[in-house]
């Protein structure tokens, strides 16, 4: 009897182990990111990987390449983590189409994951943010070119423009002055495009950047980790359809108010009574 039970237990254990192994294999498949190349397309690491100095060279080549590009268009999708008051971490996403025409033209079309759209325009004189669903816009004068406009937008108007530093003509100096350490992680591929994976550290943000190999060292993906923020949330951006020689007319950057649109202020220019009392659809449990 005891022998029989032991045999039964042994069989049961075998079944359990097999099932557990099968489950593990299945989970591994689910969690594998789809961004990465299949093993067949990943370049073989036959040659020694670049040193830190070479990693810096790659990073600055990318930064200089972007800074010196007089015109470009690119599509970008991004996802970012938000830590809720409950402690739960959620991810939101959005997509952007960027058009840059130095020194004065910048156009950003944004669509958030819940469908809300925004348009940012700068034509060298005025910067405008437009919300088509509510038909309202905020506008302010700002001369000086893209660099000054972008910094003013973020620093003084407290608006949001992820990866804004990439748009500046002084991006190389920005990234160099902020980076405290840089490593070459590996040679890899994204969607079949061979690229270099670098990892850098600034005082407050750890970043990773995947730079296309070859004569056009463009960023294909950037991941930012906010290491000092609670929950260490990440911002992840993927770039598509780089075009370094688009045909762009100046009118693309000029805002013409649509019929019956209303001009409103930038929130930073409105003095309020209590910051906690700002009414938003989220706060009121409603929808936009």
């Amino acid at each position: 009897m005891i022998k029989t039970l032991q045999k039964g237990t042994r069989n049961a254990l075998c079944v359990a182990i097999l099932a557990t192994l099968a489950g593990c294999a299945e989970h591994q498949t689910v969690t594998q990111p789809d961004t990465w190349a299949s093993p067949a397309t990943v370049p073989q690491a036959a040659v020694p990987e670049p040193t830190e100095a070479e990693a810096k060279d790659l990073l600055l080549r990318m930064a200089n390449y972007l800074a010196q590009a007089q015109r470009f268009t690119v599509a970008m999708t991004d996802n970012y983590d938000t830590l809720q008051a409950s402690g739960q971490k959620l991810e939101f996403s959005e997509k952007r189409n960027l058009t840059v025409s130095r020194p004065n033209g910048l156009r950003v079309e944004l669509e958030e994951s819940h469908g809300e759209k925004h348009l940012f325009l700068y034509d060298g004189k005025d910067m405008t943010v437009f919300n088509p669903s509510q038909n309202v816009y905020a506008q302010t004068a700002k001369a000086g070119g893209i660099d000054e406009a972008v910094v003013y937008l973020l620093k003084d108007l407290h608006m949001r423009l992820p990866l804004a530093a990439l748009l500046l003509s002084r991006f190389p100096a920005e990234i160099e002055s902020r980076t405290q350490a840089l490593d070459y992680v590996e040679k890899t591929a994204i969607h079949g495009v061979p690229c270099h994976h670098l990892a850098g550290r600034t005082e407050t943000v750890d970043y990773q950047v995947w730079i296309q190999e070859g004569t056009q060292p463009l960023p294909l993906r950037i991941v930012l980790t906010y290491k000092n923020a609670e929950g260490q949330p990440q911002f992840r951006a993927q770039f598509f359809d780089w075009n370094l020689s688009p045909i762009v007319s100046d009118s693309k950057f000029v805002f013409t108010p649509p019929a019956e649109s209303r001009k409103i202020a930038f929130a930073a220019q409105v003095t309020s009574i209590a910051p906690a009392a700002i009414a938003t659809p989220e706060a009121m449990g409603g929808k936009q």
């Binding site: 804004a164 407050t204 930012l224």
Partner: peptide, 10 residues
């Protein structure tokens, strides 16, 4: 949140 800024500093 911090990550929504998408900035290289935080």
């Amino acid at each position: 949140g911090a990550a929504a800024s998408g900035s290289f500093s935080s």
